[in-house]
Computed example of a mutant assay.
Amino acid sequence: MLTLFRIVLLPVMVVVFYSPFRGANLAAAAIFIAAALTDWLDGWIARRYGLTSAFGAFLDPVADKLMVAVTLFLLVQQNPTPMLAVTSAVIVGREISISALREWMAEIGQRARVKVALVGKIKTIVQMVALVVLLHQHDFPELRLYRIGEYLLVAAAALTIWSAFVYVKAAWPVLRERD
C-alpha cells in the first residue's frame, strides 16, 4: 500500500511543482520527502515484520525509479542547463540499464550476483538529498543551496557510474558465458 501511495504522489508532485502559488517549490519538495520516507518505512516494515510479497518486490523499485526520473525531468525542464541534463541522463540511463541487468540475471537464476551494494545505497541517499535541495529551489542568505544541490547531483551521477560498474563487474562472469 505504501508503494502504491508513493506512485499516487507522483502526479500530485507534478501538479504542485507547476502550480503558481507561493511556496509550490517547498510543497513539491515536501511531497518528494514524504515519498522517500514512505519508501524507507515500507522497507523497514517489510524487514521488521517479514511482510513481503511478489507484487511489492516488483513494484517498489519501479516506484523508486519513477519518482527519481519524473523529478529529474521536472528539474531539467525548469532549468535546462547542460550539467543538469547530462547528470540526469546518466542517472536515468543507469537506472534503466541496471534494472534490465537485474531482470535478466533473475531470469537466468543469478539475481543474487547483482544484489544491492553499499555504493548503491550511498548513491540513493546523495541523490535523494540532491533532489530535495533542487526542488526547494531557493538559496538562504550566505548559503547557495541550489548550487549545493547541483554539486550533490553531480556526486550522485558519479556514484551512479561507480555503482553501475560494481553491478556489471558482479555480473560479468555470467555475461561472458557462451550459450
Rank of each mutant, 00 (worst) to 15 (best):
P80M: 06
R6M: 02
N79H: 08
Q110K: 15
S163A: 14
E107P: 00
D42K: 06
I31F: 05
M13H: 04
L75N: 09
A54S: 14
G93Q: 09
I122Y: 00
L9K: 11
A46I: 02
R47W: 02
L75K: 02
L134F: 03
F73L: 15
D42N: 11
A106Y: 10
V119M: 05
D139M: 05
I98H: 10
L84R: 06
L75E: 08
F55Q: 10
P141H: 03
I125K: 07
V16G: 01
L37M: 11
R6Q: 00
V70F: 12
D139N: 08
V166D: 15
L72Q: 12
G149L: 00
I122A: 13
A36I: 06
A54M: 10
E142A: 12
Y49I: 04
V76I: 13
S88K: 09
L4F: 12
V62I: 15
I45Q: 08
I125W: 07
R176K: 15
A112E: 12
L2G: 04
L175C: 07
R147W: 13
A35R: 04
V114N: 03
P61T: 09
A29H: 01
L72T: 05
T38E: 04
I98M: 11
T87G: 00
V119Y: 02
L135S: 01
P141D: 08
G109F: 13
A34S: 15
A35E: 10
V168Q: 09
V132N: 06
A157N: 04
A112R: 09
V133S: 10
A36Y: 02
A100Q: 10
